[in-house]
Design a protein around this nucleic acid. Structure first.
Lengths: 245, 245
DNA sequence: CGCGGGATACTTGTATGCAAGTATCCCGCG
DNA sequence: CGCGGGATACTTGCATACAAGTATCCCGCG
């Protein structure tokens, strides 16, 4: 029943799909099953453990996760709103392919909001420059250790803290929502150590600009940083054609 | 079973609540019941036909709308994600009160993105200045006719078209999502004719700036326009204390 | 051998029934 | 009259059964 895909890495056959999702200890950890299914699927899609275009059967998901279809359906409804899942009634549900239009849109949103945030944060950033530098150090360590997941989260943490410094911590949630499509592309380039090293260097430059109060330089740096992934679009669409719509 | 609320206007007793929502001709118009319930509730909340803090019973909604609880639940799950509904398990569901933190966040997002958009749209806007001016004329007519709903939609249309001109039409969807909280405050001030007249005048000024290519002026105008509602916050919280968290 | 049609096995959408939990109301008691 | 406790009626969460529709596969026919 699996659609044929060109790529091998990460593609799981039916029998092993349960491995990518697990709702063990559901009762112990409390909370609604619906929410946990949502979180599981969201992270699996963001982390490319569920690949773009991969079919998702409600029945199968429910069976693998040990719940009924009801909470699965509610989670899928929310993921559909987020643009991460495509549902065709009476036909099937698939993980949404990466749509370049949405990626570009997310780039615009992220770039605009982060520039606006850094302008506001500029005079206040000195207070936490130490914390920001520590995050960058952690990123270097994660890169050396090959901890891709950790790198990803540390990247998130850095940008999130910049929004917090700007006095608009809630805006980060909005950025996160729109950024999901960008994230999947970032995942694709994550194994490129040289590139990631450059990205971390850019982080350091941004923090330098924050510390020295260089507003113009900071804006340019953030802009370049946000557009880095866009520059890689041609290569990525060539290497992973099946991932894109 | 209704929670006691201080306000009288717009508050409906159980028997008449069916009036604010209707799913008539559901089968004829096609589409999923879940989606239609979502749309109905979204518009009812945005339009303050369902008031902040008002309890929503899944069973009651299902009965009034002529569907089962299942599609109602899926719609509510999506609305919860949007921050428009608060669900407390085993206790009840309510229309979310207006949270000033989210309003301020939405203001920041809207202002930042609209400034970024107008900068990009500046050189391209001349092409559709006529269309923009027509929208403003329609707004004046709607104000004269007292058509509040129409005014609201025309306002949306104007800002949406600016995003379209910027080459990032999809960003408008993001703005719309975060803007919902702002919208409810806008609804509260909508009956103020003098104020609305000023708002329309600001629209005209923005279009003027677009036509003349006045980037700096355009940015300042958009900023002032976005912050107009914020200035009214104290008065609104005083006049409608029950609407705010 | 190629093609068309029908049974079949899947998909999602909806309705309903049951379970668990909480707030309320009322009655009895002090 | 005030207060406490228990039955009750509500709430949402989840599981299951049924309905409607579509793609596929296979068999029969030309």
């Amino acid at each position: 029943m699996q659609v044929s895909r060109g790529m091998g890495e990460g593609a799981l056959d039916d029998g092993r799909r349960a491995a990518v999702l697990s709702l063990v200890e559901r009762t112990r950890r409390g909370g609604r099953a619906s929410d946990q299914v949502f979180e599981q699927l969201l992270e699996a899609i963001r982390g490319l453990r569920l690949l773009p275009g991969q079919p998702l059967s409600e029945t199968e998901l429910a069976r693998d996760l040990g719940v009924s279809r009801t909470p699965v359906r509610e989670a899928i409804a929310r993921l559909t709103d987020a643009g991460l899942v495509d549902v065709v009634p009476q036909v099937g549900t698939t993980v949404a392919k990466i749509r370049l239009a949405e990626v570009e849109e997310a780039r615009f949103v992220r770039e605009s909001l982060e520039i606006a945030a850094i302008k506001v944060a500029m005079p206040l950033a000195a207070a936490d420059v130490a914390g920001l530098r520590r995050l960058i150090e952690d990123q270097r360590h994660a890169l050396d250790a090959g901890d891709l997941d950790g790198l990803f989260e540390l990247d998130e943490a850095l940008h999130g803290r910049i929004f917090a410094l700007s006095g608009h911590p809630g805006v980060w949630a909005t950025v996160r929502r729109t950024k999901v499509h960008l994230d999947r592309m970032r995942r694709l380039v994550l194994p490129d150590r040289a590139l990631i090293s450059e990205v971390i260097a850019e982080h350091a430059s941004i923090v330098d600009a924050l510390e020295s109060g260089d507003a113009i330089g900071g804006e340019d740096l953030v802009r370049a940083h946000a557009r880095r992934v866009s520059a890689l679009t041609p290569e990525l669409t060539r290497r992973f054609p099946d991932h894109f719509a």
